[in-house]
Design a binder for these strands. Structure first.
Lengths: 222, 222
DNA sequence: AATTGTGAAGCATTTCACAGCT
DNA sequence: AGCTGTGAAATGCTTCACAATT
Protein backbone atom coordinates (compact mmCIF):
# COMPACT_ATOMS: atom_id res chain seq x y z
CA UNK A 1 0.00 0.00 0.00
CA UNK A 2 2.87 2.35 0.56
CA UNK A 3 4.69 1.60 -2.68
CA UNK A 4 3.53 4.59 -4.66
CA UNK A 5 6.43 4.75 -7.10
CA UNK A 6 5.01 4.27 -10.59
CA UNK A 7 8.32 3.02 -11.99
CA UNK A 8 7.38 2.09 -15.55
CA UNK A 9 7.01 5.66 -16.80
CA UNK A 10 10.11 7.86 -17.22
CA UNK A 11 10.21 10.94 -15.07
CA UNK A 12 11.18 12.91 -18.16
CA UNK A 13 7.89 11.97 -19.77
CA UNK A 14 5.91 13.18 -16.74
CA UNK A 15 7.72 16.50 -16.93
CA UNK A 16 6.72 16.95 -20.57
CA UNK A 17 3.01 16.46 -19.92
CA UNK A 18 2.47 19.99 -18.53
CA UNK A 19 4.13 21.40 -21.65
CA UNK A 20 1.72 19.47 -23.88
CA UNK A 21 -1.11 20.67 -21.68
CA UNK A 22 -0.18 24.30 -22.08
CA UNK A 23 -0.04 24.05 -25.87
CA UNK A 24 -3.31 22.14 -25.97
CA UNK A 25 -4.98 24.86 -23.95
CA UNK A 26 -3.60 27.52 -26.28
CA UNK A 27 -4.89 25.60 -29.30
CA UNK A 28 -8.30 25.17 -27.73
CA UNK A 29 -8.37 28.91 -27.04
CA UNK A 30 -7.75 29.40 -30.75
CA UNK A 31 -10.64 27.02 -31.59
CA UNK A 32 -8.36 24.34 -32.99
CA UNK A 33 -10.13 21.05 -32.31
CA UNK A 34 -7.68 18.53 -33.73
CA UNK A 35 -3.88 18.46 -33.56
CA UNK A 36 -1.26 16.03 -34.84
CA UNK A 37 1.88 14.97 -32.99
CA UNK A 38 3.83 16.77 -35.74
CA UNK A 39 2.08 20.03 -34.95
CA UNK A 40 2.58 19.55 -31.21
CA UNK A 41 6.23 18.90 -31.94
CA UNK A 42 6.63 22.24 -33.70
CA UNK A 43 5.01 24.05 -30.79
CA UNK A 44 6.82 22.26 -27.96
CA UNK A 45 10.23 21.54 -29.46
CA UNK A 46 9.98 17.81 -28.69
CA UNK A 47 9.93 15.19 -31.44
CA UNK A 48 6.63 13.78 -32.72
CA UNK A 49 7.71 10.22 -31.81
CA UNK A 50 8.52 11.26 -28.31
CA UNK A 51 5.16 12.93 -27.90
CA UNK A 52 3.33 9.87 -29.21
CA UNK A 53 5.32 7.58 -26.93
CA UNK A 54 4.77 9.77 -23.90
CA UNK A 55 1.03 9.76 -24.44
CA UNK A 56 0.98 6.05 -25.23
CA UNK A 57 2.35 5.28 -21.76
CA UNK A 58 -1.09 6.21 -20.45
CA UNK A 59 -3.40 5.00 -23.18
CA UNK A 60 -4.41 5.47 -26.79
CA UNK A 61 -5.84 8.94 -26.94
CA UNK A 62 -5.51 9.71 -30.64
CA UNK A 63 -7.23 8.64 -33.82
CA UNK A 64 -5.05 7.11 -36.51
CA UNK A 65 -4.99 9.08 -39.70
CA UNK A 66 -6.44 12.07 -37.87
CA UNK A 67 -4.68 13.23 -34.71
CA UNK A 68 -5.68 14.15 -31.17
CA UNK A 69 -8.71 16.10 -30.01
CA UNK A 70 -7.31 19.09 -28.19
CA UNK A 71 -10.04 19.31 -25.58
CA UNK A 72 -10.15 15.60 -24.80
CA UNK A 73 -6.37 15.18 -24.66
CA UNK A 74 -6.11 18.18 -22.37
CA UNK A 75 -8.59 16.60 -20.00
CA UNK A 76 -6.72 13.29 -20.11
CA UNK A 77 -3.44 14.98 -19.18
CA UNK A 78 -5.13 16.88 -16.38
CA UNK A 79 -6.51 13.60 -15.09
CA UNK A 80 -3.17 11.79 -15.39
CA UNK A 81 -1.34 14.51 -13.47
CA UNK A 82 -4.10 14.78 -10.90
CA UNK A 83 -4.85 18.39 -11.74
CA UNK A 84 -8.56 17.89 -12.23
CA UNK A 85 -8.95 16.95 -8.58
CA UNK A 86 -7.21 20.17 -7.57
CA UNK A 87 -3.99 19.75 -5.65
CA UNK A 88 -3.25 21.86 -2.57
CA UNK A 89 0.18 23.23 -1.76
CA UNK A 90 1.82 24.94 1.22
CA UNK A 91 4.66 27.39 0.73
CA UNK A 92 7.24 28.04 3.43
CA UNK A 93 9.46 31.11 3.25
CA UNK A 94 7.77 34.37 2.25
CA UNK A 95 10.96 36.12 1.14
CA UNK A 96 11.40 37.60 -2.29
CA UNK A 97 11.50 34.28 -4.08
CA UNK A 98 8.63 32.75 -2.11
CA UNK A 99 6.44 35.78 -2.65
CA UNK A 100 7.22 35.87 -6.35
CA UNK A 101 6.39 32.21 -6.63
CA UNK A 102 3.15 32.51 -4.72
CA UNK A 103 1.95 35.37 -6.91
CA UNK A 104 3.08 33.61 -10.04
CA UNK A 105 1.22 30.47 -9.13
CA UNK A 106 -1.86 32.12 -7.66
CA UNK A 107 -2.34 34.44 -10.64
CA UNK A 108 -4.09 31.79 -12.70
CA UNK A 109 -5.27 28.48 -11.40
CA UNK A 110 -3.30 25.74 -13.11
CA UNK A 111 -4.62 22.90 -10.99
CA UNK A 112 -2.18 23.38 -8.10
CA UNK A 113 -3.29 25.95 -5.56
CA UNK A 114 -1.15 27.46 -2.82
CA UNK A 115 -3.50 27.45 0.15
CA UNK A 116 -1.13 28.43 2.96
CA UNK A 117 2.06 30.46 3.34
CA UNK A 118 4.34 30.26 6.36
CA UNK A 119 7.31 32.25 7.58
CA UNK A 120 9.49 32.64 10.64
CA UNK A 121 9.68 36.41 10.61
CA UNK A 122 7.00 38.15 12.76
CA UNK A 123 7.34 41.20 10.53
CA UNK A 124 5.76 39.16 7.74
CA UNK A 125 2.88 37.62 9.72
CA UNK A 126 -0.47 38.77 8.43
CA UNK A 127 0.83 39.98 5.09
CA UNK A 128 -1.60 39.26 2.31
CA UNK A 129 -0.13 37.69 -0.83
CA UNK A 130 -2.82 37.57 -3.47
CA UNK A 131 -5.44 36.54 -0.95
CA UNK A 132 -3.35 34.18 1.19
CA UNK A 133 -2.21 35.36 4.62
CA UNK A 134 1.34 34.72 5.80
CA UNK A 135 1.20 32.71 9.04
CA UNK A 136 3.80 31.84 11.67
CA UNK A 137 5.80 28.75 10.85
CA UNK A 138 4.68 27.26 14.16
CA UNK A 139 1.16 27.05 12.71
CA UNK A 140 2.38 24.49 10.18
CA UNK A 141 3.16 21.96 12.89
CA UNK A 142 -0.02 22.88 14.75
CA UNK A 143 -2.33 22.62 11.77
CA UNK A 144 -0.56 19.52 10.46
CA UNK A 145 -2.72 17.25 8.37
CA UNK A 146 -5.76 19.44 8.78
CA UNK A 147 -4.22 21.71 6.14
CA UNK A 148 -4.83 18.89 3.68
CA UNK A 149 -1.84 19.78 1.51
CA UNK A 150 -0.17 17.34 -0.86
CA UNK A 151 2.68 19.52 -2.11
CA UNK A 152 5.19 21.58 -0.12
CA UNK A 153 7.30 24.41 -1.53
CA UNK A 154 10.51 25.40 0.26
CA UNK A 155 11.90 28.88 -0.33
CA UNK A 156 13.83 29.05 2.93
CA UNK A 157 17.51 29.49 3.80
CA UNK A 158 19.65 26.35 3.61
CA UNK A 159 19.93 26.17 7.39
CA UNK A 160 16.16 25.82 7.83
CA UNK A 161 15.45 23.52 4.91
CA UNK A 162 15.73 20.07 6.50
CA UNK A 163 13.57 20.96 9.51
CA UNK A 164 10.93 22.58 7.31
CA UNK A 165 10.92 19.57 5.02
CA UNK A 166 10.18 17.32 7.96
CA UNK A 167 7.29 19.50 9.06
CA UNK A 168 5.85 19.53 5.55
CA UNK A 169 6.07 15.75 5.38
CA UNK A 170 4.44 15.50 8.82
CA UNK A 171 1.65 17.70 7.46
CA UNK A 172 1.05 15.11 4.75
CA UNK A 173 3.06 16.37 1.77
CA UNK A 174 4.00 13.65 -0.67
CA UNK A 175 5.97 15.89 -3.01
CA UNK A 176 8.31 18.80 -2.29
CA UNK A 177 9.59 21.57 -4.53
CA UNK A 178 12.87 22.58 -2.94
CA UNK A 179 14.60 25.84 -3.83
CA UNK A 180 17.17 25.51 -1.02
CA UNK A 181 20.63 24.29 -2.02
CA UNK A 182 20.39 21.32 0.32
CA UNK A 183 19.90 17.61 -0.24
CA UNK A 184 16.74 16.87 1.73
CA UNK A 185 16.50 13.65 3.65
CA UNK A 186 12.90 12.48 3.43
CA UNK A 187 11.00 9.18 3.65
CA UNK A 188 11.09 7.14 0.44
CA UNK A 189 7.45 7.77 -0.41
CA UNK A 190 8.12 11.51 -0.69
CA UNK A 191 9.16 12.84 -4.09
CA UNK A 192 11.58 15.77 -4.07
CA UNK A 193 12.21 18.09 -6.99
CA UNK A 194 15.15 20.43 -6.49
CA UNK A 195 15.53 23.78 -8.21
CA UNK A 196 18.91 25.28 -7.47
CA UNK A 197 19.08 28.73 -9.04
CA UNK A 198 22.75 29.28 -8.27
CA UNK A 199 23.53 25.96 -9.93
CA UNK A 200 21.50 26.93 -12.99
CA UNK A 201 23.42 30.17 -13.41
CA UNK A 202 26.81 28.65 -12.73
CA UNK A 203 26.32 25.75 -15.12
CA UNK A 204 25.25 28.18 -17.84
CA UNK A 205 28.65 29.84 -17.55
CA UNK A 206 30.12 26.65 -19.03
CA UNK A 207 28.34 27.23 -22.33
CA UNK A 208 29.91 30.64 -22.63
CA UNK A 209 33.23 31.30 -24.33
CA UNK A 210 34.59 33.29 -21.37
CA UNK A 211 36.39 30.36 -19.86
CA UNK A 212 38.90 30.09 -22.71
CA UNK A 213 42.12 30.93 -20.93
CA UNK A 214 45.48 29.96 -22.40
CA UNK A 215 45.42 26.68 -20.51
CA UNK A 216 48.06 23.99 -20.83
CA UNK A 217 48.18 22.16 -17.52
CA UNK A 218 45.04 20.11 -17.10
CA UNK A 219 44.17 18.68 -20.50
CA UNK A 220 43.29 15.03 -20.36
CA UNK A 221 46.61 13.13 -20.69
CA UNK A 222 45.34 11.00 -23.58
CA UNK B 1 36.01 28.62 -34.91
CA UNK B 2 32.29 28.81 -34.43
CA UNK B 3 31.78 25.21 -33.31
CA UNK B 4 31.66 25.72 -29.58
CA UNK B 5 29.60 22.65 -28.63
CA UNK B 6 31.76 20.51 -26.34
CA UNK B 7 29.82 17.35 -27.21
CA UNK B 8 31.77 14.69 -25.32
CA UNK B 9 30.73 15.72 -21.83
CA UNK B 10 27.15 15.00 -20.68
CA UNK B 11 25.09 18.04 -19.82
CA UNK B 12 24.07 16.27 -16.61
CA UNK B 13 27.71 16.20 -15.52
CA UNK B 14 28.08 19.95 -16.11
CA UNK B 15 25.03 20.56 -13.96
CA UNK B 16 26.53 18.59 -11.08
CA UNK B 17 29.75 20.61 -11.00
CA UNK B 18 28.23 23.60 -9.18
CA UNK B 19 26.89 21.23 -6.55
CA UNK B 20 30.37 19.81 -5.96
CA UNK B 21 31.68 23.34 -5.85
CA UNK B 22 29.26 24.37 -3.14
CA UNK B 23 30.16 21.42 -0.95
CA UNK B 24 33.88 21.96 -1.53
CA UNK B 25 33.52 25.58 -0.44
CA UNK B 26 31.64 24.50 2.69
CA UNK B 27 34.36 21.98 3.51
CA UNK B 28 37.08 24.55 2.96
CA UNK B 29 35.20 26.91 5.27
CA UNK B 30 35.35 24.15 7.86
CA UNK B 31 39.11 23.74 7.33
CA UNK B 32 38.79 20.32 5.73
CA UNK B 33 41.68 20.05 3.30
CA UNK B 34 41.14 16.62 1.77
CA UNK B 35 37.93 14.91 0.74
CA UNK B 36 37.16 11.54 -0.86
CA UNK B 37 34.56 10.88 -3.52
CA UNK B 38 32.73 8.82 -0.89
CA UNK B 39 32.47 11.82 1.41
CA UNK B 40 31.38 14.07 -1.45
CA UNK B 41 28.76 11.47 -2.31
CA UNK B 42 27.26 11.62 1.18
CA UNK B 43 27.07 15.40 1.02
CA UNK B 44 25.70 15.75 -2.51
CA UNK B 45 23.51 12.68 -2.86
CA UNK B 46 25.29 11.53 -6.01
CA UNK B 47 27.25 8.26 -6.18
CA UNK B 48 31.02 8.21 -5.65
CA UNK B 49 31.60 6.64 -9.08
CA UNK B 50 29.55 9.33 -10.73
CA UNK B 51 31.51 12.04 -9.00
CA UNK B 52 34.84 10.49 -10.00
CA UNK B 53 33.67 10.08 -13.60
CA UNK B 54 32.37 13.63 -13.79
CA UNK B 55 35.69 14.99 -12.60
CA UNK B 56 37.67 12.64 -14.81
CA UNK B 57 36.05 14.15 -17.90
CA UNK B 58 38.23 17.18 -17.27
CA UNK B 59 41.43 15.73 -15.89
CA UNK B 60 42.92 13.76 -13.00
CA UNK B 61 42.51 16.05 -10.03
CA UNK B 62 42.75 13.54 -7.19
CA UNK B 63 45.48 11.51 -5.55
CA UNK B 64 44.97 7.73 -5.46
CA UNK B 65 44.74 6.37 -1.99
CA UNK B 66 44.13 9.86 -0.64
CA UNK B 67 41.36 11.89 -2.22
CA UNK B 68 40.91 15.41 -3.54
CA UNK B 69 42.27 18.65 -2.14
CA UNK B 70 39.23 20.76 -1.41
CA UNK B 71 40.83 24.09 -2.31
CA UNK B 72 42.51 22.89 -5.50
CA UNK B 73 39.47 21.00 -6.77
CA UNK B 74 37.26 24.00 -6.08
CA UNK B 75 39.54 26.16 -8.20
CA UNK B 76 39.57 23.56 -10.97
CA UNK B 77 35.77 23.49 -11.09
CA UNK B 78 35.61 27.27 -11.11
CA UNK B 79 38.04 27.29 -14.01
CA UNK B 80 36.14 24.58 -15.91
CA UNK B 81 32.86 26.42 -15.57
CA UNK B 82 34.47 29.74 -16.39
CA UNK B 83 33.57 31.26 -13.03
CA UNK B 84 37.08 32.45 -12.22
CA UNK B 85 37.00 34.82 -15.17
CA UNK B 86 33.76 36.32 -13.81
CA UNK B 87 30.77 35.96 -16.12
CA UNK B 88 28.44 38.90 -16.71
CA UNK B 89 24.67 38.53 -17.02
CA UNK B 90 21.78 40.77 -18.07
CA UNK B 91 18.32 40.25 -16.62
CA UNK B 92 15.19 41.32 -18.47
CA UNK B 93 11.88 41.64 -16.63
CA UNK B 94 12.01 43.31 -13.23
CA UNK B 95 8.73 41.85 -11.97
CA UNK B 96 8.46 39.87 -8.77
CA UNK B 97 10.38 36.88 -10.07
CA UNK B 98 13.06 38.93 -11.79
CA UNK B 99 13.61 41.06 -8.73
CA UNK B 100 13.78 38.04 -6.47
CA UNK B 101 16.30 36.41 -8.76
CA UNK B 102 18.45 39.50 -9.02
CA UNK B 103 18.61 39.88 -5.25
CA UNK B 104 19.22 36.19 -4.80
CA UNK B 105 22.10 36.19 -7.22
CA UNK B 106 23.59 39.54 -6.26
CA UNK B 107 23.60 38.73 -2.55
CA UNK B 108 26.82 36.76 -2.74
CA UNK B 109 29.05 36.65 -5.74
CA UNK B 110 29.11 33.14 -7.10
CA UNK B 111 31.06 33.91 -10.24
CA UNK B 112 28.09 35.09 -12.28
CA UNK B 113 27.20 38.73 -11.77
CA UNK B 114 24.04 40.47 -12.95
CA UNK B 115 25.35 43.75 -14.32
CA UNK B 116 22.22 45.14 -15.94
CA UNK B 117 18.46 44.91 -15.44
CA UNK B 118 15.91 45.95 -18.05
CA UNK B 119 12.16 46.42 -18.06
CA UNK B 120 9.41 47.80 -20.26
CA UNK B 121 7.46 49.54 -17.52
CA UNK B 122 8.42 53.23 -17.02
CA UNK B 123 7.21 52.95 -13.42
CA UNK B 124 10.17 50.65 -12.77
CA UNK B 125 12.86 52.70 -14.49
CA UNK B 126 15.49 53.91 -12.04
CA UNK B 127 14.57 51.44 -9.31
CA UNK B 128 17.64 50.20 -7.49
CA UNK B 129 17.86 46.45 -6.98
CA UNK B 130 20.83 45.72 -4.76
CA UNK B 131 22.94 48.31 -6.51
CA UNK B 132 21.78 47.72 -10.08
CA UNK B 133 19.46 50.28 -11.68
CA UNK B 134 16.47 49.14 -13.74
CA UNK B 135 16.79 50.58 -17.24
CA UNK B 136 14.37 50.86 -20.18
CA UNK B 137 14.33 47.80 -22.38
CA UNK B 138 15.22 50.03 -25.33
CA UNK B 139 18.64 50.53 -23.73
CA UNK B 140 19.40 46.86 -24.27
CA UNK B 141 19.30 47.21 -28.03
CA UNK B 142 21.14 50.54 -27.83
CA UNK B 143 23.93 49.30 -25.58
CA UNK B 144 24.20 46.00 -27.41
CA UNK B 145 27.58 44.36 -27.24
CA UNK B 146 29.05 47.21 -25.20
CA UNK B 147 27.27 45.65 -22.19
CA UNK B 148 29.71 42.76 -22.53
CA UNK B 149 27.27 40.18 -21.18
CA UNK B 150 27.56 36.46 -21.82
CA UNK B 151 24.38 35.28 -20.08
CA UNK B 152 20.82 36.54 -20.44
CA UNK B 153 18.01 35.89 -17.96
CA UNK B 154 14.41 36.16 -19.12
CA UNK B 155 11.71 36.78 -16.55
CA UNK B 156 9.25 38.35 -18.94
CA UNK B 157 5.70 37.46 -20.03
CA UNK B 158 5.41 34.77 -22.70
CA UNK B 159 4.37 37.31 -25.31
CA UNK B 160 7.64 39.25 -24.98
CA UNK B 161 10.02 36.31 -24.63
CA UNK B 162 11.04 35.66 -28.24
CA UNK B 163 11.74 39.32 -29.01
CA UNK B 164 13.74 39.76 -25.80
CA UNK B 165 15.72 36.59 -26.52
CA UNK B 166 16.71 38.01 -29.89
CA UNK B 167 17.87 41.25 -28.33
CA UNK B 168 19.92 39.40 -25.73
CA UNK B 169 21.55 37.31 -28.44
CA UNK B 170 22.25 40.46 -30.44
CA UNK B 171 23.91 41.88 -27.32
CA UNK B 172 26.28 38.92 -27.34
CA UNK B 173 24.67 36.39 -24.96
CA UNK B 174 25.72 32.82 -25.62
CA UNK B 175 23.53 31.28 -22.92
CA UNK B 176 20.00 32.11 -21.82
CA UNK B 177 18.12 31.23 -18.66
CA UNK B 178 14.49 31.34 -19.69
CA UNK B 179 11.68 31.46 -17.13
CA UNK B 180 9.01 32.15 -19.77
CA UNK B 181 6.89 29.17 -20.83
CA UNK B 182 7.95 29.55 -24.43
CA UNK B 183 10.25 27.56 -26.70
CA UNK B 184 12.81 30.13 -27.75
CA UNK B 185 14.08 30.06 -31.30
CA UNK B 186 17.75 31.04 -31.18
CA UNK B 187 20.89 30.49 -33.29
CA UNK B 188 22.54 27.09 -32.74
CA UNK B 189 25.51 28.50 -30.87
CA UNK B 190 23.24 29.81 -28.11
CA UNK B 191 22.53 27.48 -25.20
CA UNK B 192 19.07 27.78 -23.64
CA UNK B 193 18.11 26.47 -20.21
CA UNK B 194 14.40 26.61 -19.51
CA UNK B 195 12.90 26.81 -16.06
CA UNK B 196 9.16 26.48 -16.21
CA UNK B 197 7.74 26.94 -12.73
CA UNK B 198 4.19 26.03 -13.67
CA UNK B 199 5.50 22.84 -15.22
CA UNK B 200 7.46 22.02 -12.07
CA UNK B 201 4.39 22.38 -9.89
CA UNK B 202 2.07 20.53 -12.24
CA UNK B 203 4.41 17.60 -12.70
CA UNK B 204 4.79 17.30 -8.94
CA UNK B 205 1.07 16.71 -8.72
CA UNK B 206 1.66 13.37 -10.44
CA UNK B 207 3.66 12.07 -7.49
CA UNK B 208 0.79 12.80 -5.16
CA UNK B 209 -1.95 10.30 -4.36
CA UNK B 210 -4.72 12.80 -5.12
CA UNK B 211 -5.17 11.59 -8.66
CA UNK B 212 -6.67 8.26 -7.62
CA UNK B 213 -10.18 8.51 -8.96
CA UNK B 214 -12.30 5.41 -9.54
CA UNK B 215 -11.13 5.22 -13.13
CA UNK B 216 -12.07 2.41 -15.51
CA UNK B 217 -12.11 3.81 -19.03
CA UNK B 218 -8.55 4.56 -20.06
CA UNK B 219 -6.37 1.80 -18.65
CA UNK B 220 -3.87 0.54 -21.19
CA UNK B 221 -5.75 -2.24 -23.05
CA UNK B 222 -2.94 -4.72 -22.53
C1' DA C 1 45.29 0.03 2.94
C1' DA C 2 42.96 3.27 0.73
C1' DT C 3 41.10 5.68 -2.98
C1' DT C 4 41.34 7.32 -7.70
C1' DG C 5 40.58 6.70 -12.77
C1' DT C 6 38.45 3.94 -16.32
C1' DG C 7 36.94 0.26 -19.75
C1' DA C 8 33.00 -2.56 -19.93
C1' DA C 9 28.41 -3.86 -18.59
C1' DG C 10 23.94 -2.45 -17.49
C1' DC C 11 20.08 0.51 -17.69
C1' DA C 12 17.13 4.20 -19.38
C1' DT C 13 15.53 7.13 -22.84
C1' DT C 14 15.14 8.55 -27.49
C1' DT C 15 14.79 7.70 -32.30
C1' DC C 16 13.65 4.69 -36.08
C1' DA C 17 10.70 2.28 -38.98
C1' DC C 18 6.65 0.38 -40.00
C1' DA C 19 2.31 -2.15 -39.04
C1' DG C 20 -2.37 -0.91 -37.91
C1' DC C 21 -6.50 2.05 -38.11
C1' DT C 22 -9.66 5.46 -39.86
C1' DA D 1 -3.60 8.88 -47.76
C1' DG D 2 -2.52 10.11 -43.29
C1' DC D 3 -1.34 9.73 -38.66
C1' DT D 4 -1.16 6.96 -34.49
C1' DG D 5 0.87 3.31 -31.60
C1' DT D 6 4.81 0.39 -30.83
C1' DG D 7 8.51 -3.19 -31.08
C1' DA D 8 13.44 -2.83 -32.21
C1' DA D 9 17.72 -0.26 -32.81
C1' DA D 10 20.50 3.41 -31.38
C1' DT D 11 22.14 6.48 -28.24
C1' DG D 12 23.41 8.34 -23.85
C1' DC D 13 24.15 8.02 -19.04
C1' DT D 14 25.14 5.47 -14.80
C1' DT D 15 26.97 1.74 -12.24
C1' DC D 16 30.23 -1.94 -11.80
C1' DA D 17 34.52 -3.88 -11.06
C1' DC D 18 39.16 -3.62 -10.93
C1' DA D 19 43.85 -2.06 -12.27
C1' DA D 20 46.81 1.82 -11.04
C1' DT D 21 48.86 4.63 -7.70
C1' DT D 22 50.20 6.68 -3.35
Amino acid sequence: MSLATSSRIPEAAIRRLPVYLRVLDELQQADVEIVSSAELAVRTGFSPEQIRKDLAYFGAFGTRGVGYETAALGQEIRRILGLSAGVRAALVGAGHLGTALARHSLAKDKGVRIVAIFDNDPAKFGRNIDGVIVRPLADLAAAGRRLDVQIGILTVPATAAQAVAEQLVAAGCEALLNFSPVKLDVPPHVFVQNIDLTMELQSLAYYTSVRREPETEADKPE
